[in-house]
Simulated scan of single mutants.
Amino acid sequence: MSACQTCGACCAAYRVQFSVYELDDAGGTVPASMTEPVNGATCRMRGTGEVPIRCVALTGMVGVSVGCTVYSQRPAPCRELTEGSYACDKARARHGLAALGDDLPL
């Protein structure tokens, strides 16, 4: 099991903004119903534009057991954030979780 499935910190730490061209109603895959507009070219996942941050697609409890209801349709910022990266470890620290960067297998 991936550490991501017990973490979810990134989904409750970062604003997830991306191009409107990723939306399903524009030919992409991200469900438009789960987003809100930022400007004419950019949108974001609902729940990531206010504090406390929690993406609308996140299920479960951060640091215990989580899931993403749109995992196969998630936007580019979510696909690009990798387990154990600096951004991952920073999000984990915001939620009082230990860093993964040094613990990942080579």
Rank of each mutant, 00 (worst) to 15 (best):
C7F: 01
C10A: 13
C10S: 10
C11P: 04
C11V: 08
A12G: 01
A13P: 01
A13M: 07
Y14V: 03
Y14N: 04
Y14F: 07
V16P: 01
S19Y: 07
S19E: 13
S19M: 07
Y21G: 15
E22N: 10
E22W: 07
E22D: 11
L23Y: 02
D24C: 11
A26K: 14
G28R: 02
T29Y: 12
P31R: 06
P31I: 07
A32W: 07
M34N: 02
P37G: 10
V38E: 00
N39M: 06
G40H: 15
A41P: 05
M45W: 02
M45A: 05
R46L: 15
T48F: 03
T48Q: 05
V51A: 12
P52M: 13
R54S: 03
C55H: 05
A57W: 00
L58N: 03
L58Y: 02
T59R: 03
G60I: 04
M61T: 15
V62Q: 05
G63R: 13
V66W: 05
C68G: 00
C68L: 00
C68S: 02
C68W: 01
C68I: 02
T69K: 08
Y71G: 01
Q73N: 11
R74G: 00
P75Q: 03
A76D: 10
C78E: 03
R79H: 09
R79C: 10
E80D: 15
L81N: 06
L81Y: 04
E83V: 11
E83N: 09
G84T: 04
G84K: 01
G84N: 05
S85F: 07
S85A: 14
C88T: 00
K90N: 09
R92V: 04
A93D: 14
R94S: 15
R94Q: 15
R94L: 15
L97R: 08
L97Q: 13
A98Y: 10
L100K: 08
G101S: 14
D102E: 15
D103S: 14
D103T: 13
D103E: 10
L104I: 14
L104T: 09
P105C: 08
L106T: 11
